[in-house]
């Protein structure tokens, strides 16, 4: 056997400790607080949903790798499992189990493996999974139930999400549901009370923010996309006489900004490009929420911006060292 130490590849020779599994499991860790909170709020439903989606994503990945004659053990690298978890995070907890499984299969098999596997997909797999489900099962994907409060079991009566309330009844309906502005912010931030409603993983803005900060500190993501995303969303909402704090606390804004838009594969390479990307996501989210047919637009805005990534990368590419100025 040849000695690996004697093998010399071309430069650079700095070795970074980062590997695909390490990055993926760090993201998992960052999602853990939100995951645990969803278990507290939605109970067994959320447990079943997330476990089934994660396992099924890995099964799909393994099957695809086998068919494509790739090393099957890469299904343990966490990328498929993360996709499965994010699909589960993006559906209502009461959805029949086979639907998110179908979404997971679409995400892993069609969006990821059909395009060439890890690192080759154009669109965020989990978000396409969500878009696929939303187009297929509009009724199941938009029926929400208020999560359990301590002592009270999950309420079976379906209700509107805060964004749905805003869309249907405007600010007055929101104030009526939450009581006061202060309690509205608190409920939304911690995903409790009237704020404990929505997709499995998006209910608590603060816990998601915590996970996002963890990723920032560990250097997995840079601040450019989430900050420009949320800042744009808040500023544009403010300019159009909306409530900026409500805009970034409600719906999937936090989950989208920190965990979906920042996907390394489907976001721009340079920091300048990432700022443009985040700006576009924020603007489109606002446009869809305000004038679109759906109350929530984070997922579609990120998908649309995913499609523009090659253009953005071409627009702001760095000058290669040693070549002339244009």
């Amino acid at each position: 056997m040849e000695n690996k130490l004697l093998k010399l590849s071309s430069s650079p020779h700095i070795r970074s400790g980062d590997s695909v599994p390490k990055v993926m499991w760090t993201v998992f860790l960052a999602l853990l607080p939100a995951l645990i909170w969803s278990y507290v709020i939605f109970g067994l439903m959320a447990v079943k949903l997330t476990v089934v989606c994660v396992l099924f994503a890995m099964v799909c990945e393994a099957a695809c790798l086998k068919i494509r004659k790739q090393p099957v053990k890469s299904c343990w690298d966490g990328s498929a499992a993360l996709t499965g978890l994010l699909v589960a995070f993006n559906v209502p907890p009461t959805i029949p189990l086979w639907m998110p499984m179908l979404g997971t299969a679409v995400a892993v098999v069609i969006v990821k493996q059909c395009f060439g596997g890890l690192g080759c997909n154009i669109f965020n797999p989990a978000l396409i999974g969500r878009a696929f489900l939303l187009a297929s099962f509009p009724k199941h994907m938009t029926s929400w139930t208020l999560g359990a409060q301590f002592g009270n079991p999950v309420d079976a009566v379906s209700q509107a999400t805060p964004l749905g309330l805003l869309k249907e009844g405007g600010q007055e309906a929101l104030l009526e549901a939450f009581g006061s502005k202060g309690s509205m912010y608190l409920d939304l931030a911690f995903g409790y009370g009237r704020g404990a409603i929505g997709c499995v993983g998006e209910i608590s803005a603060v816990l998601l923010l915590l996970g996002g900060l963890f990723l920032l500190i560990r250097g997995i993501i840079s601040w450019h996309i989430p900050i420009s995303f949320l800042l744009t969303l808040a500023v544009v909402t403010f300019l159009f006489k909306g409530d900026p704090l409500f805009a970034i606390l409600s719906g999937g804004a936090m989950l989208g900004a920190f965990f979906m838009a920042t996907d390394m594969v489907t976001s721009p390479l340079t920091h300048k490009g990432q700022l443009i990307f985040g700006f576009g996501c924020g603007l489109l989210t606002f446009i869809i929420r305000r004038w679109g047919g759906y109350p929530e637009g984070v997922s579609y805005s990120i998908l649309i911006m995913n499609a523009t990534v090659p253009l953005i990368d071409g627009l702001v590419s760095n000058r290669v060292f040693g070549t002339g100025k244009k």
Partner: peptide
């Protein structure tokens, strides 16, 4: 419950 997206253009 059929998968509605399949009869849409997508």
């Amino acid at each position: 419950d059929p998968i509605g997206i399949m009869i849409l253009p997508a």
